Simulated scan of single mutants.
Amino acid sequence: MVARFSLGYIVSAAAALAASAILAPVAAATPGVTVSPGMEIRQASNVCTLGYVDPAARIAYSAGHCRADGPVTDREGNFIGTVSTSMDNTPDGAVVRTDQVISDYETITLASDVVINNILPGGRQLVADTAPAMAAGQPVCHFGVVTGESCGSIERVNNGWFTMENGVVSQKGDSGGPVYMPVDGNKAVIIGLFNSTWGTFPAAVSWVATRQQAGADIGVVNVAAAQDANASATAN
């Protein structure tokens, strides 16, 4: 077992599983606001990093423990979307067994008028293509709004989450940020969302496990309902 240190700026104590869905119409964003992976997002007093943006579905992902009441905004306070589903069963201020399953994600239904791209701050396109099976020693990078991009290797693969070493760093505010494998000079494949630090090792939840969990959660189905409600409200 390893000790955990949370990396959200301000997060509530939530050792139990938390899941919810919001079906209200999505409000309009400030014109010209761009949403992209690796950007800073704010939810009430919580400051985190956006992990992945799906341009087709207009849904973004970050860490579930970043969730707070109210809308999601960028660092300037511009509205970008609403949390549609969130889940976090990360042990709080304790230890975790390496065989324990960790779920820590939120989906954000993006406002209809935000500009979306999938380009990381460093210029690489972040894609959700199939990645090699994760194993210790594989190269990996992480982007957080506080530490920027740092690269190293996978330290250990656990049950739906993994730890990193050899250069990967993190600070408060990096939670939810993308963890990825660079595949060429202009592209990176997402493999996880940054979760926390366990012992001395930065850790992330697996992207594959997150997508599987999201697909099983009823709240994800309700994302489409929220978009339909928004379209209906706009039409009326």
Rank of each mutant, 00 (worst) to 15 (best):
Q213R: 12
A203R: 09
T30M: 04
G70P: 00
E155N: 14
S103W: 07
W161R: 07
K172D: 07
D174Q: 15
T85I: 04
S6Q: 14
V208D: 14
V96P: 02
I41E: 03
F79L: 04
S150L: 08
T210W: 06
N159D: 03
D69T: 05
A19S: 09
T109M: 01
G122F: 08
A3V: 08
G93Q: 12
V26Y: 01
D54V: 00
Q213D: 08
G32E: 11
S12C: 02
V179H: 10
Y105N: 07
A16Y: 15
L23Y: 06
G215L: 06
I41Q: 05
T73R: 09
V168S: 04
P25Q: 11
T30S: 10
Y180G: 02
T34Q: 15
A203C: 05
A3R: 15
D228L: 14
V145W: 05
P139L: 02
V35E: 06
L110S: 07
D74S: 03
I116E: 14
I190S: 02
T107V: 00
Y105P: 02
Q43L: 00
K172F: 09
C141A: 06
K187M: 09
A216V: 00
H142D: 03
G199L: 05
F194M: 15
E76Y: 13
L50E: 03
G176R: 13
G38H: 10
F162T: 01
A128G: 05
V101S: 08
A18G: 09
Y61R: 10
P132Y: 11
G8H: 10
T73E: 04
T90Q: 15
S12F: 04
M1Y: 13
L17P: 06
P132C: 08
A44Q: 06
T210P: 03
G70Q: 02
Y61K: 05
V83M: 02
A13Y: 12
R75E: 11
S20M: 01
I10S: 11
S103M: 07
A188V: 03
A135Q: 14
G32N: 09
M134H: 07
H142S: 04
Q138P: 00
T85D: 08
S232G: 01
N186V: 01
G192W: 04
A204P: 08
I119P: 12
R42H: 02
D217Y: 03
E106R: 07
V47S: 13
T49I: 06
G176I: 13
Y105S: 06
P182M: 10
N159C: 01
D129L: 08
V208K: 12
A203S: 15
N78A: 05
A15E: 13
V168A: 03
G215H: 03
I218Q: 09
N118M: 02
A233D: 07
L126Y: 01
Q213A: 14
A224R: 14
Y105C: 06
A235W: 04
P121T: 08
D69I: 01
S175K: 15
G176A: 13
A203E: 11
P121F: 10
G160S: 07
Y105F: 15
G152Q: 02
R4L: 08
V168R: 04
T197H: 12
G173I: 13
N158I: 01
V145S: 09
L17S: 14
A3W: 15
G177T: 11
V183F: 11
F162C: 01
A15I: 09
A21I: 00
P31W: 12
G122K: 12
D69P: 00
G173N: 11
D113R: 09
G51H: 07
F162N: 01
Q100M: 00
T147N: 14
P182C: 07
A19R: 08
